[in-house]
Design a protein around this nucleic acid. Sequence first.
DNA 1: GCAGACCAATGACTTTTATCATATTACTAA
DNA 2: TTAGTAATATGATAAAAGTCATTGGTCTGC
Lengths: 240, 240
Amino acid sequence: MTNVNHTHDVSTMCQYCEQRFTSVLCRAKHEFLDEMNSQKVCNIYKKGQTLFNEGSHPFGVYCINSGKVKLAHLGDDGKEQIIRLLKGGDVIGYRALLSGDRYSASAVALEDTQVCFIPKELFTNILKSDASLAFEMMKLLSDELHKTEMKLTHLAQKPVRERLAETLLFIKETYGFEEDGITLNVRLSREEIANLVGTATESTIRLLSEFKRDNMVELDGKKIKIINQKKLARTANLQD
Amino acid sequence: MTNVNHTHDVSTMCQYCEQRFTSVLCRAKHEFLDEMNSQKVCNIYKKGQTLFNEGSHPFGVYCINSGKVKLAHLGDDGKEQIIRLLKGGDVIGYRALLSGDRYSASAVALEDTQVCFIPKELFTNILKSDASLAFEMMKLLSDELHKTEMKLTHLAQKPVRERLAETLLFIKETYGFEEDGITLNVRLSREEIANLVGTATESTIRLLSEFKRDNMVELDGKKIKIINQKKLARTANLQD
DNA sequence: GCAGACCAATGACTTTTATCATATTACTAA
DNA sequence: TTAGTAATATGATAAAAGTCATTGGTCTGC
């Protein structure tokens, strides 16, 4: 976890951040951006490292600059349920902070990830004085709620096969392809995919093999290539 | 659907509303409360009537004064998934409105329900000018998101038996008991309970019979009495 | 009160999915 | 390199849950 906060280094300033057009936080008014810039702490988390743990108290929010992060609950029996996948421009940790709860999920880097930390007080102060940012945050929360509700319905009503196909397409939507235009641009273990789908690891492995047999995907270690997206979408039985 | 908006009738004024201490909307500043009071439209929906339908455009938000409402998605195969149960003081319809989407779920009265409708423009204007109300709305959204994420995890990881027990306790938390202190204060069909749990109607019926055999509940038509809440909680295997 | 519709209950059966066991392959560290 | 560990793959089996079919009950409107 390397601290890379050099306030005068242009590369770490919010005003010049690569994510300044995508992240909600960067829609704050200029005065607040300046303040955020001076108070934030930037860190690099190596693959597998934890940004925060389920059950601990939030001290602020995290803005992902680059990299990939998974957000996951630990079920009662110790099984992980992946709730969200995050990338550059995404903000995490606001849910618990706004509710006044402890974190209800853990955030773990899926690859080396650069993150800016904004302290709690600053974040809430900005929200309280910048109505339009508050409105954006509400939109973000609403979208997240909507997505989660849809996942809930699908989990309740769709068979594993459809959910896996849907999840592969979701991963593609989130992280896109590599330069070759077919390889999913993230390395997830079969277990992690299973924890995203909400099924057993073996079921995921079996179905991935079927998808391969049916020429929808190609498998090469942890690399997953989508070679027939249409067919995969049909398998997912999407209509929304 | 009877219109009961008599602006000068004290019984329908926000300032004197029974829910004025429980509902988020009533935490708006006084000036906005006055405006809400003059612009709102109050209606009574009879049991089974629809407040709004999945797929239609939101024109405002609904504040429940009294009664009970279910919020449900329609799955691709036409199966209903109940997302939320609502009661007096709850606000619905804000999710779609904030996201700028159409409604992603339908709201149906579970019994005769009195509702105030606040037009879209007023609602968004108030949110944009009343930062503390906006903050409360964010809290509300965060809580809702949290609950939905927990449901998702349980749906993915817990067997139907545990989820049904959990759902019965959730209904009790939401609507409480009747005067006798044991009968759930809402009438839901077995199918609706199944759609809340995320399972088949027959499975719900079967398990309810088991719960009865094991002296956890008593069944009397649609009335469900919880006679051993401890045992039910153990069956639900709750730890959070 | 009665017919018709709807809902609840239950048995029989099927399908889906999880679990367990065991290879096989890939990855890691000495 | 090589041993050792972890991840993937696949078969066999078990358990869970869904579907279908039938019956009896309850409610509703005529």
